[in-house]
């Protein structure tokens, strides 16, 4: 899973997709996850990093994480397989 290269993420958590002109805001944990995605970390590595840093239940985090990825995907912020393989 990889965040699209051209998507800009600011420190404050504002995402900007330059292709569509859409902006989104995410909270600080969202920013951390986006940075992990940018670094091409796997789901397991991201889960490990977040659970190691915050006091959260594994199952609850993974549910929320999948929801978050779903929202990113729905808004075309994640590279599709074709884009990743191109």
């Amino acid at each position: 899973m990889k965040l699209k290269k051209n998507v800009a993420v600011s420190e404050s958590g504002l995402l900007f997709n330059p292709v569509t002109g859409e902006s989104f805001s995410v909270n600080p944990i969202g920013v951390e996850i986006l940075n992990f995605l940018r670094e091409e970390k796997t789901d397991e590595q991201i889960s490990e990093a977040i659970l190691g840093k915050y006091n959260a239940e594994k199952q609850a985090f993974e549910n929320d994480y999948q929801d978050f990825i779903g929202v990113l995907s729905h808004n075309n912020l994640i590279e599709s397989h074709e884009e990743t393989n191109a």
């Binding site: 051209n6 330059p18 292709v19 569509t20 002109g21 859409e22």
Partner: peptide, 21 residues
């Protein structure tokens, strides 16, 4: 190219952003 961000009731852009598509 520009995406309209804020549209008046007459459909006119009152705010917009330059994009790269």
């Amino acid at each position: 190219p520009m995406r309209k961000q804020y549209i008046t009731d007459k459909g006119k852009a009152w705010g917009g952003i330059s994009i790269s598509d």
